[in-house]
Design a binder for these strands. Structure first.
Lengths: 200, 200
DNA sequence: ACCTTTCTCTACCAAATGGTAGAGGAGAGA
DNA sequence: TCTCTCCTCTACCATTTGGTAGAGAAAGGT
């Protein structure tokens, strides 16, 4: 992983580029020629590694899910009560989003897919969801988080983090620019925002 | 407006359907044939009213911006201090999103467009943005809202509202279903979430 | 009755798209 | 050296896409 040098296996380079382009321009807005051209390879090489566009899409989605779940898993099971654990998770997701902006952009493509395609992905996530919901409920009972519907709360936090990480236009329109310093400030403000929203 | 009966002018029906399909499947994922077929008209009829797909896209985007700004303008200039005005605005946007779910979905397409296309739209919104930012700053000074960077705060609220209103998959994965009662509950939880996030 | 404008249609077209068929190069094992 | 597998290529195809050309129905003004 990491830098994905030119010498990386062709299949991996294709997957990386496809993830990037799908996330930036949408799945429908990205042709196999676009991907092949960016990788620097013929379209048929691409079709050798992934027998159809649908197959490529499937691989990209599962690989993305795996990468994001990996980023989430550690902090979620880490130490800390109340908001500390939420903060660690958010930081991890945010770091992943900064490292590869297209990752979260791709997550939003799920809304575009027919439900049957995304159902398996959602299945893969459901156990994580239930764990998170149960934990939220416990923290609320213990008075460490504001009492609310834990499922809706989860969606709201998700929407806030993914939204602000992907909706670059919304940030551009308020005059924000993506420098390193501004990114740190954005993360700090987001944490404060969510801290206020979640603490009792 | 309102129900958009079959007898509405063809150009309007095309615009409505195009907004819907662009918002649901993305601009790149919607062909002129899709739109024409849904409207129940030949593709060339569509090209008579809008000379090219780009022209149609432009019309759809500006019409959407107008409709959303109209929904926002009243509550923004309404009475009430502190969170009351924010709440009225959010309710208005949320009502618009429920009435036409594709509206906000379309807003997210802006990220996909090349910057030059969206620049004019952002220009049209910039005065509203500045008004909102100035008001937020005033309320913070007066101690009626939590002190924070008003521009980033605006983006965070935007991301939360638009995200939760459009990211149906995120709600589906936590077992939420779009009934009337659940929609009311969702709005209530969202308001509470934002109230906690914004009040000092 | 006639003409003009408005609107929608059928019939095409060139480019792009996802995909197939199969040739050919490079390396490893015999 | 021969062959076998792995990998990438050129050449081609059917479908879809955005778009053009122009015919024809309907309606109003004269």
């Amino acid at each position: 992983m990491g830098f994905m040098a030119q010498s990386a296996p062709t299949a991996d380079r294709i997957l990386t580029v496809a993830t990037d382009l799908f996330g930036r321009h949408g799945i429908a807005g990205t042709s196999l020629d676009d991907i092949a051209g960016t990788v620097g390879v013929a379209k048929q090489t691409l079709l050798y590694w992934y027998p159809s566009k649908d197959a490529l899409i499937g691989k990209v989605l599962t690989a993305t899910a795996v990468e994001l779940l990996y980023a989430i898993d550690k902090p979620v099971r880490g130490a800390g009560d109340g908001f500390a654990r939420v903060e660690a998770t958010i930081n991890s997701v945010f770091a992943a989003a900064v490292r590869r902006p297209s990752l979260l952009g791709l997550v939003r493509e799920l809304n575009r897919l027919d439900t049957s395609t995304s159902d398996q992905l959602l299945d893969a996530m459901s156990s994580h969801i239930e764990t998170a919901v149960a934990w939220l409920e416990g923290e609320m009972q213990a008075g460490r988080l504001r009492k609310a519907d834990p499922r809706i709360l989860l969606s709201l936090v998700y929407a806030t983090v993914v939204g602000v990480a992907t909706e670059t236009e919304a940030l551009r329109v308020v005059g924000w620019e993506p420098t390193v310093g501004n990114l740190r400030k954005l993360r700090r403000e987001m944490i404060e925002f969510l801290r206020a929203a979640l603490l009792p």
